[in-house]
């Protein structure tokens, strides 16, 4: 399955979104990780009949399509929110509380 974001990049986006108030890109990233898990699971699933093969192939193909759509979505959302696309750092104005301890 083709990927634009690495697992590490997705986790880094999620890391910066600790709480739900500032977590829209993180929600998308989380589902992308879920789709990757689903895709991998289908690849490794046991096939005992032709139907099994068809089922697993269908799910894997649709997971890949959904994955591509969500990766494009994440890219667009990060641009809209003006994240630093090189470092994937959340802009300060999205952080809930600016004070540092």
């Amino acid at each position: 399955m083709k990927t634009d974001f690495t697992d590490e990049q997705l986790s880094h986006i999620i890391d910066q979104s600790l709480i739900y108030q500032c977590a829209c890109p993180a929600q998308v990233a989380k589902h992308i990780i879920g789709l990757r898990d689903l895709h991998e699971y289908q690849q490794n699933c046991i096939n005992q009949s032709d139907t099994d093969i068809a089922v697993h192939q269908r799910i894997a193909a649709d997971a890949a399509r959904a994955h591509q759509a969500l990766e494009e979505c994440l890219h667009a959302v990060l641009q809209l929110e003006q994240w630093d696309l090189t470092t994937l750092t959340m802009p300060n104005n999205l952080q809930k509380i600016p004070r540092v301890i």
Partner: peptide
């Protein structure tokens, strides 16, 4: 390690 998220947790 992140000052921002640390702040949220502490608060």
């Amino acid at each position: 390690s992140n000052p921002y998220t640390r702040t949220l947790l502490v608060e």
